[in-house]
Amino acid sequence: MNELAGIADRLPLVTQIHPNPGSGTSEDLEDAVRDLASHFTYLARTVATRDRQARRYPHRYTAQLREGNAALARAAAPTGRALADLGEAVTAAGRLHRLNHSPPGPGHAEDLQHTIEVLGVHVTRARAHLFAAARQLRADAHRLLTAQAPAAPENLTTLPVAASASHRGHGR
């Protein structure tokens, strides 16, 4: 979950996307796609592995493992959408590259501006999907950990702080 939010944080903001070739946007996208593809692969592999484990060892496959697996599976949808948007952003970055290295002609400035806007839209969407996946995973982890925590015994009592402090050092 933190890794997905970290990838989102490293994506360029719309205000950081510039038409000049040295802006670093393509490199930022490359890093994000590589990292996100790795995390997406982890999600898919973990879901498949746990499914195999459940079939092979049904008596060991606990409700908590099932819920954890379902949480990872739910995270795959927004993570996949983020990856798709990054794919579109790479396409726009390629178009931006072509425009940057082409002789200006009629409509060049408009094409350049439109391509930057398209790139910004896809990066913004990818960021939103990644943050949504991270929020969902955090909420699921919190829910699973809360459900797992043992309840305090009903007959458990504690001494008031003042009462326990008053016994210290007296009567010895």
Rank of each mutant, 00 (worst) to 15 (best):
N2R: 09
L4I: 04
A5D: 00
D9L: 06
L11A: 02
P12L: 11
P12N: 10
L13P: 05
L13V: 08
T15S: 15
H18N: 07
H18E: 04
P19T: 02
P21E: 10
G22T: 01
D28Q: 12
H39R: 09
Y42V: 10
A44C: 13
T46I: 06
R50L: 15
R50K: 11
D51I: 03
D51K: 15
R55Y: 03
Y57Q: 12
Y61M: 12
Y61A: 05
L65T: 13
G68Y: 02
N69L: 02
A70P: 02
A70R: 06
L72M: 07
A76L: 12
T79S: 05
A82Q: 02
A82P: 05
L83D: 05
L83A: 12
D85L: 10
D85P: 06
L86T: 01
A89S: 15
V90W: 11
T91W: 10
A92E: 12
H101K: 11
H101Q: 07
H101I: 05
P103Y: 10
G105I: 10
E110T: 07
E110M: 05
E110L: 07
D111Y: 07
Q113S: 15
G120D: 04
V121Q: 09
V123R: 00
V123W: 00
T124R: 13
T124N: 14
A126H: 02
A126R: 01
A126K: 02
A128F: 04
A134G: 04
L137F: 00
R138Y: 03
R138W: 01
H142T: 11
L144W: 04
L145S: 11
P150T: 14
A151I: 01
N155L: 08
T158G: 09
L159P: 00
V161M: 09
V161L: 15
A162T: 06
A162V: 05
S164Q: 15
S166V: 00
S166N: 04
H167K: 12
